[in-house]
Design a protein around this nucleic acid. Structure first.
Lengths: 200, 200, 200, 200
DNA sequence: AATGAATGAGGCTTCATTCAT
DNA sequence: AATGAATGAAGCCTCATTCAT
């Protein structure tokens, strides 16, 4: 009976948050091995449930991914919304990048996943959504009439931030320092792009 | 008889270059759909041969990818070698980026593939090889004692070039202009990094 | 409704014993055609299930064989254990052979399989296990200091029992008589081996 | 040119005996891994030729096995023929076993193969041939009116000889001693069978 | 006497998914 | 809220064999 109670306790802990736990494990594995290479069996095994249990919480494998997205794209949507209410000054842009950097840090595994599984994501329903969001993000930091190189700078700034955390993994140094360095470069790029469209 | 000759001509064309044709089709599909999602059946069908024929030319699916790599990394190896014989001046770095841009243009589909399938490639034998090459490339344009932000600039420069072609697909403009714009930004980043390590 | 009941009955019969049924069919086919020549498709078809169903119950093809073994080697393990608690008299040995003969009759198809697929089994994980068991069996009927010919006699006795059932298939006669004849020869061999080590 | 000559020399050595070399390698591999598990690719590779070359010398894979047999069954056919011209005395039987033991030693790998691949061989054309030969061999040492146990003794004698070499691999001792021990047991068995049919 | 290129059949295995319980 | 059992499709790969050269 003690044994039963112990089991019950464990189950109680799990009760109600299985959906969350599935997402956590899925993201972990998707980011680590890629979406295609991660099987539902693997996810289920690591959770100690059956594959069929996953289907109680999600309609398809892709649905798990969609779920992950919906949770994590809200901060970015809010950031874009906020940005669109601000004047398009350099200071605003700096603030956008700063906030974006923070949002990215929170959702790092998901962005790592997006970065490293573009080919897969492109074919998924979630792909368009993500691309849209990127374009709208770029629009908040890019001058509407910017010359090509300045457009590249803005895109590169965002891209550098996305990739930054993973690219620097082999470089020595404190993670927080790295984040700041990445942010500095991104701000630099955007600053140049901002000035560039004024002077010609 | 004409028909026969046509068939003969076709066969003659095919003979001896099937290996090459496999690689061409494979790269096309890998870049388009990703490595995992591309099946050998698909490659074979598009070529009008059997799956087994692929296995005459390549030992495994992964081997096709390795083959693609070996053909296309030589230009980069040569570039790195050349770079290491030059003085590490800003002019040299500009030349490196210029040459790299050209090499990239030639091998665009492969780099698109690497960019979009990092999660997959990471687990493949070819992953390490690629990473090594990137590190050595970065070493040719980075000052040994560069501060973190300048390191980020160099990495970002390379990365921007890799991604440039695809990121700008939605932007209007002549491809050649885009390439130049990307190169300009990359040179800019490296120039800043070069100066950065001199003045402090 | 009868039809429905019949179907239900069939399903009830199947439920819970599919694993057993797989093993039964597999053993039958393995013994008949050999392990390599028996495909999972064949097993599945004869059972009226899909190949994938086999994989729900067994991890690999080899695993089916391992399963067969585990079920059928227990009687022999028990026999060895019992033998090791007895004094090593001739009477004990006679009893060992008698019991072994019975165990063999029960597991005849499996032993036929082992006998006829040695080359295959040797490379399988189950091979070593089987060999070990044989060695331990021989140790129960062999005197520790037996001369070479007496060792041969003991090995031959066991081997004759293994092979007996199949070798005599072309000989006329009642199966029970044959079994007794085989047992008689085996006892004879072991008796000679027993005496052999006492008299010199 | 020197290099060419060296190659020529090697080829000259090989010329004309490729058929033999194929058989040698095939037997080696068949005995080691079994017939089914040995692929023509493996044989060809170990020989340094193409699979297609094998088909120049043999019509099918099975044909290689048949070829091996034809070369090696002649001694046994001769032995049987000789035995049938002798009086069926105990001395004759002893001589038969002695000669058989020698024939076996010469063709050891082939007999090991037969022993360990019975399931496979049974379905091959060569199977019947082999079984026939065994029956005729047994007829040379068995009294026509022998009781069941004496028949078992004769079969066991032959079987013990076949298996002897491999079964004793784990037993310490000189190979020649082992062969003699096996022969001694076989003669013993046949002697008992010979006497057995006289006394009742 | 042997090769290069290819085929068709089939092998084992894994996957996402379903459904009655 | 979850399981046990199963499916159909598809995956990668290997095999024996063929045939023009």
């Amino acid at each position: 009976m003690d044994a039963t109670e112990a089991t019950d306790a464990t189950k109680r802990q799990r009760r109600g948050n299985t959906r969350q736990r599935i997402q956590d494990v899925a993201l972990e594995l998707f980011a680590e091995q890629g979406y295609e290479k991660t099987s539902l069996r693997e996810i289920a095994e690591r959770l100690g449930v059956t594959k069929a249990a996953l289907y109680y919480h999600f309609k398809t494998k892709e649905d798990i991914l969609v779920g992950l997205f919906q949770d994590l794209q809200r901060p970015i949507d809010e950031l874009i919304e906020w940005a669109n209410t601000q004047p398009r000054t350099l200071d605003t842009k700096r603030e956008i990048l700063l906030r974006y950097s923070e949002a990215l840090t929170d959702a790092a595994p998901l962005f790592r996943f997006m970065q490293e599984n573009q080919a897969t994501v492109r074919e998924l329903s979630v792909g368009e959504t993500f691309k849209d969001r990127m374009i709208r993000m770029i629009d908040t930091i890019k001058e509407p009439d910017a010359a090509l190189p300045d457009q590249v700078r803005c895109i590169s700034a965002l891209f550098t931030m996305h990739a930054g955390m993973f690219l620097l993994r082999d470089v020595e140094g404190d993670p927080e320092d790295k984040r700041k360095a990445v942010l500095e470069v991104a701000i630099d790029l955007v600053t140049q792009a901002h000035g560039g469209s004024r002077q010609p």
